[in-house]
C-alpha cells in the first residue's frame, strides 16, 4: 500500500470534522470510529442513517455533521441512499448543481440493521450497483434499546435477551463474507483502535465507485460491560486475539491487512467484559471457552 497518504500515525488528521457535544456514551467505540472515518470521507457527504444509537448524533436541532443527514427506518437505509444518489444524479444531469457540489451517499447503521433487518435492502442495492458507502458500526447487539442480541452477537455473550448461564446460543453472522459474495467494489473490516489501518481502508474506499462496505467493530462500554477508558485496549485485544480479523475484499480477493504474529488467547479478550463474566464465574466454563477459541483457531487455519 505505497500509494496511501497515511504511512504513519503522524499522517492522521489533526483537525477533526465531526462536531463535539453528541450524546453518545463516554468511551463509545462506535463514535471513535465514526470520527476517524468522517475525517477522511470529508464534508462532501450525506449520511443516511437507520435507527440505532448513532441516530442520536443528529437530534433536532443539533447535529455534529457539516452536511446533510437523513433518517430512515431500520430496514431501509440502502433504499434511502438510492433516493439520495438518484436525486443528486438528476440534479447533476440537469446541471442544477455542478460536479463540485456532488456528494457521496454514506449509509450509517448499527449491526441490528446491517446483519439483520436491512440485509435484504443492502443486497438489492448491490444488485443495482448503487454508488454508495455503507458503514456498519458493530456493537454486537441492539445497543440503543438496551443491548438485546442481534445476529452479530458472539456465541456465549450475555445480552438482555440472552441472560442465561450460557449466554447467546447463536453464532455471529459472517457479514463480511455475505457482502463479499455479492462481489461489490469493496468490503473491509476496521476498528477504531487501529486508526492507521482504518484510515488507509477508508481512503481506498473513498477513491472507488460502486457499492463499498465497511464494518467497524465497536467496543461498547454500556452494552459489553467495561470501564469506558478501556475501549482502545479491548479493541486492540479483539485484533490481537484474532476475534476481529482486519481484512479487505477487493478485485475478487480477500487480503488480511493485520495478521497477529502471535495470536493471544481469546480468554484474554473475553475476560475484559462483563458480558462474558459468566464464562469465568462462579466457575470456569472451560468447555465454552475452548469452543470459542476453537472457532477462532479454525478461522485462522484457513487464512493463508
Amino acid at each position: 500500500m505505497n500509494d496511501t497518504h497515511f504511512k504513519r500515525m503522524k499522517d492522521l488528521p489533526s483537525t477533526h470534522l465531526l462536531g463535539t457535544g453528541t450524546p453518545m456514551c463516554a468511551g463509545c467505540g462506535g463514535l471513535q470510529a465514526i470520527n476517524d472515518i468522517y475525517d477522511i470521507l470529508g464534508e462532501k457527504t450525506v449520511f443516511i442513517n437507520a435507527a440505532g444509537c448513532m441516530t442520536l448524533l443528529s437530534v433536532y436541532p443539533f447535529t455534529p455533521f457539516r452536511g446533510s443527514w437523513l433518517y430512515t427506518a431500520m430496514a431501509s437505509a440502502p433504499a434511502g441512499a438510492q433516493g439520495v444518489r438518484d436525486a443528486l444524479d438528476i440534479l447533476l444531469e440537469k446541471k442544477k448543481i455542478g460536479q463540485e457540489e456532488n456528494l457521496t451517499a454514506v449509509v450509517l447503521t448499527g449491526d441490528g440493521s446491517a446483519y439483520g433487518m436491512g440485509l435484504s435492502a443492502t443486497s438489492a442495492a448491490i444488485d443495482r450497483n448503487l454508488d454508495f458507502i455503507y458503514i456498519c458500526y458493530d456493537n454486537e447487539g441492539y445497543g440503543n434499546t438496551g443491548q438485546q442480541y442481534s445476529s452479530a452477537t458472539p456465541h456465549g455473550a450475555r445480552t438482555s435477551t440472552s441472560s442465561g448461564s450460557m449466554g447467546y446460543p447463536g453464532f455471529k453472522k459472517d457479514l463480511f463474507s455475505i457482502w463479499a459474495a455479492h462481489k461489490p467494489t469493496y468490503v473491509a473490516t476496521v476498528i477504531g483502535a487501529e486508526p492507521l489501518d482504518l484510515a488507509r481502508k477508508i481512503e481506498k474506499a473513498a477513491q472507488l465507485k460502486g457499492p463499498r462496505f465497511i464494518i467497524t467493530l465497536s467496543p461498547c462500554p454500556t452494552g459489553w460491560g467495561f470501564d469506558p477508558q478501556e475501549t482502545m485496549q479491548i479493541g486492540k485485544l479483539a485484533v490481537k486475539s484474532g476475534v476481529w480479523p482486519l481484512k479487505e475484499y477487493i478485485d475478487g480477493k480477500i487480503i488480511h491487512t493485520k495478521v497477529p504474529k502471535i495470536r493471544m488467547s481469546v480468554e484474554d479478550y473475553l475476560a475484559t467484559q462483563f458480558r462474558f463474566a459468566h464464562l469465568f464465574k462462579p466457575e470456569r466454563n472451560t468447555r465454552l471457552i475452548d469452543e470459542i477459541q476453537g472457532r477462532v483457531d479454525e478461522y485462522w487455519d484457513h487464512v493463508s
Binding site: G19, T20, G21, T22, S58, Y60, T63, F65, R66
Partner: peptide, 18 residues
C-alpha cells in the same frame, strides 16, 4: 419540517457537564 439548516450545531451542547 424539522430541518436543521446549519452544520455543527451540536457544539452548543455542553456535554462536559456529564
Amino acid at each position: 419540517a424539522p430541518t436543521i439548516h446549519a452544520g455543527l450545531t451540536s457544539v452548543q451542547v455542553k456535554t462536559g457537564l456529564w
